[in-house]
Design a protein around this nucleic acid. Structure first.
Lengths: 149, 149
DNA sequence: AGGGATGTTCAGGCTACCTGTCAATCAGGT
DNA sequence: ACCTGATTGACAGGTAGCCTGAACATCCCT
């Protein structure tokens, strides 16, 4: 997904609406993930998270990555090209389907994922600090209910 | 603003993290605003909300709109061009500064804003239904705390 | 074996941004 | 009053990140 780098509108009324608040919170925190990883000296772009979020040890097919990120397989192909150039992933032929290729993390890519996990964990503990552990759990519970069905 | 039309990555760990949940919730609801307004027969695009969210009865200068949306004044200029073509806004010279122009809503634009407010209000009452009024208030309280400082 | 579906890639195009530049105008100091 | 630097908005050109269309190999079903 692409993150807005702005207070994302959708206000349209004097009292700030809940949806705008969700957007602002996401935008604020989402950028801190990428910034955090980049801050450790690893060059990545926001869109790359669409791959890292889905990758699995046994490898994932391009088409499945594209479906999961809700973009065309062509767009995902370019994305994987970039990550291949950066040395974070490689393509291997799928032994079970000679049309397909499996996208797998390289050692370097594994380090990126580890850095990402660590940054996310840090951000989550900062949420814990701000809301209290109970507040954070309550927030997650409310979001879960908002997202279900 | 740009909304993702996908579950927004940033997962990077097995348990879905809070930031990803915020993104999903925002993405889900944000699109429903535009869809709702478009559903009433008014053609707009998501990015247009960057203008409608900031517009004021006395008119706003292009530069201020750009700053508020966190985009370049050139990009905002294009956006206002589009909205002018659609008949939702017009540019008037600013009587106090002959360099500047004030972007104001037309009657038609006022109807768009009214439709937007109404759709947002509907979505907010659906949040009320899902979380209960108290739950919704609690969500807003938590988000406010997350966004402050 | 034949025929349609699927996985990947190449080519071309569009949209929403960006930076660089410019002329007009403003505002502050001398 | 005048010069200087900042600001407003328009014009031009460029890039990133997506898209659709088409090609080709391979799969899977009959």
């Amino acid at each position: 997904m692409s993150m807005a780098d702005s207070p994302p509108g959708h206000d349209l009324s004097s009292r700030v609406n809940t949806i705008a608040m969700l957007g602002r919170a996401y935008s604020l925190l989402g950028f801190q993930i990428v910034d955090g990883v980049v801050g450790t000296g690893i060059p990545i772009k926001p869109k790359h998270s669409a791959v890292f979020a889905q990758i699995a040890p046994h490898g994932v097919r391009l088409t499945d990555l594209a479906r999961g990120a809700n973009i065309s397989s062509q767009a995902m192909g370019e994305l994987v090209d970039e990550l291949e150039d950066l040395g974070y992933v490689r393509r291997e032929p799928d032994p079970r389907d000679r049309r397909a290729k499996l996208v797998k993390l390289t050692q370097s890519g594994t380090r990126v994922v580890a850095a990402g996990r660590s940054v996310v964990a840090d951000l989550e503990s900062r949420i814990d600090e701000k809301l209290g552990h109970a507040g954070h759990r309550e927030l997650r519970r409310l979001l879960t209910r908002l997202l279900e069905d």
